[in-house]
């Protein structure tokens, strides 16, 4: 674990806050496994996108989903905060997804509460057409926080956490759309961490960014891993190799292999994985 943690960007109070939720929520093994995916079949209308997926994602680790386009990795990711609910005709036909032991697709689960705990960063940076400040405080204001001092504090903390503070501290009240692509993506990350989720889902966060901006986001992921559980979907295998602890390889809606990142890239067990990571297809 070679975290490049720039000391001032991570302020001490956040670490206990994130950690405090862990002990109370179950026996010791549960702290290890945060998300438990159990034999999941997923359909878009009549088209089956996921076939019998089972895997467990560990707490405070970075898990990467790789695989060719259309393999179902984004679909699975979007199951974790039930974003697929927004698409008509989607359903989980079989299996369950549990976060800290709770089946998130049970009818009595509050989706709003779930999404507060499972943040998301999208492929295309999507700051709201509002000021930087309003972008960050949006989630908190939804929860009814209106104390100015508290909001100011969270804005600074989140922007520092997303390594954006120094760049934007003098123009917090200008539009978020005025930032560069990489800055916009980091703003979106800051917006996601402002509500203190436990899990951050990243859906190809760097695919629209240039190499320099990508490097910055990757660096950021390294600093965030101590506080959050991160699941990242990526097309870029070097990226998966660089930032993740565990990697899952998907192909045609099936989970082909799931193991420590080093193993996936150095000595994959499955020949398909081997072919993909060595660049022979995909």
């Amino acid at each position: 674990m070679d975290t490049l943690a720039p000391a001032p960007t991570l302020r001490p109070p956040s670490a206990p806050a994130a950690a405090s939720s862990a002990p109370g929520s179950g026996p010791a093994p549960a702290a290890e496994t945060l998300i438990e995916i159990d034999h999941v079949d997923f359909f878009y209308g009549a088209v089956q996108a996921l076939h019998d997926i089972s895997l467990s994602i560990q707490d405070k680790k970075v898990t990467a989903f790789i695989g060719p386009s259309g393999c179902g990795k984004s679909t699975l990711l979007r199951c974790f905060n039930r974003m697929n609910d927004l698409i008509d005709g989607t359903r989980i036909a079989k299996g369950s997804i549990k976060i800290r032991g709770i089946d998130i697709h049970r009818p009595d689960v509050d989706v709003i509460e779930l999404r507060k705990r499972v943040g998301m960063v999208f492929q295309k940076s999507n700051p709201f057409p509002k000021s930087i400040y309003e972008n960050i405080t949006y989630g908190l204001k939804l929860q009814g926080v209106s104390n100015k001092a508290r909001l100011d504090e969270v804005v600074e903390k989140s922007l520092r956490g997303a390594a954006l503070w120094e760049e934007v501290k003098d123009r917090l009240h200008t539009s978020g759309l005025g930032l560069s692509g990489g800055q916009q993506q980091r703003l979106c990350i800051a917006r996601a961490i402002a509500v203190e989720p436990e899990i951050i889902l990243m859906d190809e966060p760097c695919s629209a960014l240039d190499p320099v901006a990508t490097a910055k986001v990757e660096e950021l992921i390294q600093t965030l891993r101590t506080r959050f559980t991160i699941v990242i979907v990526t097309h870029n295998m070097q990226q998966a190799a660089r930032c993740s602890d565990k990697t899952a390889f998907f192909y045609m809606g099936k989970l082909i292999e799931y193991a420590d990142t080093r193993n996936i890239f150095m000595n994959p067990a499955n020949p398909q994985t081997e072919a993909y990571v060595s660049g022979r297809f995909g």
């Binding site: 927004l86 509460e113 999208f122 999507n126 949006y138 939804l142 929860q143 917006r191 509500v195």
Partner: peptide
Amino acid sequence: AFKEASFALGATRLQTIIR
């Protein structure tokens, strides 16, 4: 994308529409 981002932050449908 605006709508998705808002939902992902835990907004209800009404909050997303209004805000």
